[in-house]
């Protein structure tokens, strides 16, 4: 199954960039996996997702849990994601719903959301806080294992 990994976030704002760090690391460690950084998310991700069998979206989130906590939600299975409301006009859930309504035949049947609980998203820094950094590594490993298995 052809898989696309999408990283969402602002690389300059510390843990906000966790999803982008995952994508950048995948590009180095597993260049065979299609991975793309769409920065602020929004409807751009619909264009990127077209034609794939599965999409894995990695984003930083804030739920009040321990920083570095990883959420793994299979949206296509009807699982309710933690409510992620993007700050940029169109949130992720709305975007994916829009894709289903407007271009259902082009959207990946499998849609997975990986959320990484952030600690600091205010300071300007191109590195994450230690617990989020560790979570980024774990997510990268998980994605490589998952995509590798499916491709085998």
């Amino acid at each position: 199954m052809k898989t696309l990994v999408i990283g969402v976030g602002n690389l300059l704002r510390c843990d906000d960039g966790a999803g982008v760090h995952v994508v950048n690391r995948l590009k180095k460690l597993a260049p065979q996996i299609d991975a793309v950084d769409v920065a602020m998310g929004g409807v751009e991700i619909l264009e990127a997702m077209k034609g794939y069998g599965r999409v894995i979206i990695v984003d930083s989130i804030r739920t009040g849990a321990e920083p570095g906590t990883i959420y793994n939600v299979n949206i296509a299975d009807g699982e309710e994601p933690p409510r992620i409301s993007s700050s940029h006009g169109v949130d992720l859930v709305t975007t994916l719903e829009l894709g289903r309504r407007l271009m259902p035949e082009e959207m990946p049947p499998e849609q997975v959301l990986i959320g990484i609980e952030a600690e600091d998203t205010v300071i300007f820094s191109v590195t994450c806080t230690p617990r989020v950094e560790a979570a980024v590594d774990r997510v990268v490993d998980e994605i490589i294992m998952l995509v590798g298995q499916i491709n085998d």
Binding site: I61, T63, R83, S86, S87
Partner: peptide, 13 residues
């Protein structure tokens, strides 16, 4: 546009 701010939001908005 406060996009010069950050992307992460509290879990509930």
């Amino acid at each position: 546009c406060f996009g010069c701010s950050t992307h992460t939001l509290p879990g509930k908005a």
